[in-house]
C-alpha cells in the first residue's frame, strides 16, 4: 500500500475564507496605496513618459511645431564632441571625485575615532554642504581670481612659480572636482558614520590588545561593520554625482556659459533646456540628455548594488 503525496484539498469553506482574506488585504492595499499611486503617476510616471516622447521630437516649447525625429536626438548626442566631453567630465567627477570623497571619509573615520572634539570636527566638515552655491561662488572668486587670495599667498611665500589662472577654461575643471570634494565629503561622512558609530568600542579595545594598527582596525573592523551605510553612501553619491550642476555654476558664475572643458552632462542639459543666454529652448535634445543621464545612472546603481551586496556581519 502506498501513501498518496497529493495534499489534501482544502475544504470549500476554508478556500472561501482564504479568498475573503485575500480580497480584504487587496482592498486595504488599494485604499492605502491609491493616493501614493495616483500621486506618483501624476508627478513621476506621466512626466517621465512625456520626457521620453519629447526626446524623440524636435520641439522648442509651447507655441512652436513639434517635429517627430525618432532617435535623431540620441544619435546627435552620440556624435557630439561637446556632449561626449560633458559626459566624460561627469564620469571623472563621479569616479575620480568619488574616490577622493570616500578617501576623505575613510581617513576621517580613522582619524576622528580617537580624537577629542570629533563631533565638532564632523560638523565643520559638514558645513560646506549647507552653504549656498552663490556664497561658494563669491568665495571662490575671491580666492581663485588671478589677483585673489591663493595667488597672493603663493607670492607671499615665494612660490610665485606655482601661480595659475585657476578659473581659466583649461584649469577650472580640476578646481571644480576639488570644490565638489570639499563641499560634499561631510555629507557622506555623516552617512557612513551612522554605521561606524554602532560598532561596539570593545572590538577596538580587543584589536588594540591584539596589536592591530589603526589602518588594520579600519579594514578589519570599521569597514566590514559599517558596510551597509557605506553602500548607501556610494549609491547616493552615484546618483548625486551624475547630476552635478550647481558647483559648476558656482565656479563659472551665472553671467556666462560654462566653457566646454568644465561642462557636465547636467550643465549641457540645462543649456539645452534654457537655450543659454539669448537663446531658445531645445526641449527634444534636453530630454534626450535627461534620458541618457537616467539610463547611465541606473546602470551604475544596479552595478554598485550588485558589487557592494554582501551578507550582513552579525555580532554575536
Amino acid at each position: 500500500m502506498t501513501e498518496t503525496l497529493t495534499p489534501r484539498p482544502a475544504s470549500v469553506s476554508s478556500r472561501r475564507a482564504i479568498r475573503r482574506r485575500r480580497r480584504g488585504v487587496d482592498r486595504i492595499l488599494v485604499v492605502f496605496a491609491a493616493p501614493a499611486i495616483v500621486l506618483m503617476t501624476v508627478v513621476l510616471l506621466v512626466p517621465s513618459v512625456f520626457t521620453v516622447i519629447i526626446s524623440l521630437t524636435k520641439w522648442r516649447g509651447f507655441g512652436t511645431d513639434v517635429a517627430w525625429v525618432g532617435l535623431r536626438n540620441y544619435v546627435s548626442l552620440w556624435q557630439s564632441e561637446i556632449f561626449r566631453t560633458a559626459m566624460l567630465n561627469t564620469l571623472i567627477l563621479v569616479f575620480v571625485g568619488g574616490a577622493m570623497i570616500f578617501a576623505v571619509v575613510f581617513f576621517m573615520l580613522i582619524g576622528l575615532r580617537h580624537m577629542r572634539g570629533a563631533g565638532f570636527a564632523r560638523s565643520v566638515v559638514f558645513v560646506p554642504m549647507i552653504i549656498s552655491p552663490i556664497a561658494i561662488g563669491a568665495a571662490l572668486g575671491f580666492l581663485l581670481n588671478p589677483n585673489g587670495g591663493v595667488n597672493a599667498i603663493l607670492a607671499a611665500i615665494n612660490l610665485e612659480g606655482l601661480r595659475q589662472a585657476w578659473l581659466a577654461p583649461d584649469f577650472v575643471f580640476r578646481m571644480i572636482v576639488l570644490g565638489l570634494v570639499w563641499s560634499v565629503s561631510g555629507y557622506y561622512l555623516a552617512i557612513v558614520a551612522t554605521g561606524a558609530d554602532q560598532i561596539p568600542i570593545d572590538l577596538y579595545e580587543e584589536a588594540d590588545l591584539a596589536g592591530a594598527s589603526k589602518w588594520q582596525q579600519f579594514w578589519l573592523v570599521t569597514l566590514p561593520l559599517s558596510w551597509e551605510s557605506t553602500s548607501v553612501a556610494v549609491v547616493l553619491w552615484l546618483i548625486s554625482g551624475m547630476k552635478t550642476f550647481e558647483i559648476v555654476i558656482a565656479f563659472i558664475g551665472t553671467q556666462g556659459t560654462p566653457p566646454v572643458q568644465a561642462r557636465t552632462a547636467a550643465v549641457q542639459q540645462f543649456l539645452a533646456t534654457t537655450g543659454g543666454p539669448d537663446g531658445t529652448p531645445q526641449l527634444g535634445q534636453a530630454s534626450a540628455i535627461g534620458i541618457a543621464i537616467f539610463a547611465l545612472t541606473s546602470v551604475f546603481v544596479i552595478l554598485a548594488r550588485r558589487i557592494l551586496s554582501r551578507d550582513r556581519v552579525e555580532l554575536s
Binding site: L144, N145, P146, A165, V172, F251, G253
Partner: peptide
Amino acid sequence: FQQDYMGTQFPA
C-alpha cells in the same frame, strides 16, 4: 590684456 585674463571671474 591683463595677466591671466581667461581666469578672471566676472566682475573682477
